[in-house]
Design a protein around this nucleic acid. Structure first.
Lengths: 285, 285
DNA sequence: GCTCGTTCTTTGTCCGACAAACAGACTAAG
DNA sequence: CTTAGTCTGTTTGTCGGACAAAGAACGAGC
């Protein structure tokens, strides 16, 4: 087995009767590697948490070169099905939902969704989430919400930003539903919409206090198991949010802000930044 | 520059005054490559649709070996920011939402969400989507919906499965809202929930006909711009769905079906399947 | 029994090479 | 002049092999 995959070459000929010709595409070997391992995980032969075989072993078993294997592993890694633990080893893992929503959020922010589009979505989701949360909430989440409220109170009093705490509050409510689907559904939009608060705050007096009151009402209803109340308060809260946005002079039909510069997400404080070489200055085309 | 990145090695020493020690982690060079290119795209220096420089050029400019560059490119590829067009070349691109939701769906299906959890979510989303769709729908989507209804009618008459068409109908409604956020929010859950139809159908007479009628009502309202009507019909449709599920004898508190075997998704018809070598039979740890 | 240095493994990178696919330029045929 | 075929340079996909550093495993010494 040497050089190019014999994958794509043969097999396309022999046009019989009703030829359909659905664009044949030969996957490169590194992608086959990816799918092969993916399969092992999805079909349970490699369980979540299991260590993957070493690169050399994989290369050997799959009959490809180690470099090729590594490329496949990168795909696997980025797909969330393999994860580095303690630095080096790769372990089979479930795609992390926060990772997924982060990506979704990025996709959204690049696709010019309007404030109102997001708002309508969350207006549908959040009240329903609150209602379900009221049915299912557990002690742990109650404690987390209480802590969140306390910190929010502090922040409001000190005049600090409450955006992060706001996001967290709503995320906790979603978590309280006990189903990952909720979190996944709302997170990207929420992460894009709620930070608008940041821009409203300077223009609206006591908006922080209003937010805190609203959160408290919602929390009380949720803790009391009052689904209907939780839903109602949440809806009011969301409506109030939009009202504030308009009042502050923003246009809800505009695409939501481009989020500005990518502020220090993951690994931004990289030690040795790769620099372009002085030599040639690119030009691709 | 040879061998290991000097990234992680040096630089950790020199403990001055108030040392904080925030877990330094040296990203391997291939990840730095990934982030470097990612940045170029996110910050607009590489615009969506632009061809990426060739691997050799990238390697040269970033000062790493081509193999390393390729690993970084695989990460980029899987993250959705680079895409193959016409087979080979890589182009900067936006993460495709259907790709994202596919992954989200997989994550969900592995995390044991209950039927009811999903159902509650969609019961909140779908009616709201229909309402918004009624406000914003355009001719093109109307045509697509009409085509969908026609095919659904055929399928019902012929007794074929309508699951795919059902999914498509709802996705089209979501698309009609004009905001990608809706699609992203509902797709994973919908893809997991609606196929339950498949299992109900054999146990419930005329359920296909009911579905068709419901879709028609929703469509009529949407086309007429009747948001309230669309919302009402959709809600009924969703409620009906759950009723059928229970009636058919399934327990809505159970985790939704594990989707069974991964039926021929992408690239399953791979030409040269990679096989394990006869030699050693793995055993890791 | 626990710590320390020594070996073995595994990952991260690099070097170099080459076949096949592709894009173009050019040429022969209709 | 258009169409089909040929040649050529570029780019990707893979492969072979090498080596440093980080961890892990292991045995010697306190």
């Amino acid at each position: 087995m040497d050089g190019t995959a014999e994958a794509g070459a043969g097999g396309a000929a022999r046009e019989g009767a009703a030829a359909v010709f659905s664009a044949i595409e030969a996957a490169p070997a590194y992608r086959l590697v990816f799918h092969a391992i993916e399969r092992e995980i999805l079909e349970g032969r490699l369980r979540i948490g299991d260590r993957l075989p070493t690169e050399t072993e994989l290369a050997h078993r799959l009959g490809v070169h180690r470099s090729t294997t590594r490329e496949g592993l990168r795909l696997l890694e980025q797909s969330g099905l393999a994860e580095r633990r303690e630095g080096r080893r790769l372990y089979a893992s479930l795609p992390r939902t926060d990772d997924l929503s982060e990506r979704a959020q990025r996709a959204l922010s690049l696709s010019r969704v309007s404030f109102d589009g997001l708002w309508r979505l969350l207006r549908a989701l959040e009240p329903a989430a609150a209602a379900l949360a009221a049915e299912r909430i557990d002690a742990e989440t109650i404690a987390a919400l209480e802590a969140n409220l306390a910190r929010t109170a502090d922040a409001v009093e000190a005049g600090r930003s409450v955006t992060q705490l706001d996001l967290e509050f709503h995320a906790l409510i979603a978590d309280a539903t006990g189903d990952a689907a909720w979190r996944l559904a709302r997170e990207p939009s929420a992460a894009l919409l709620f930070p608008a608060n940041e821009r409203m705050l300077p223009r609206l007096a006591q908006s922080g206090a209003r937010l805190l009151t609203a959160h408290r009402n919602i929390f009380d209803a949720v803790r009391a198991g009052d689904g209907e109340g939780a839903e109602r308060w949440m809806r009011r809260h969301i409506d109030d949010f939009r009202r504030g946005y308009v009042l502050a002079g923003f246009d809800p039909d505009e695409p939501v802000s481009p989020v500005g510069a990518p502020e220090s997400g993951d690994e931004t404080r990289r030690p040795g930044r790769i620099e372009a070489r002085p030599g040639e200055q690119g030009g691709d085309g």
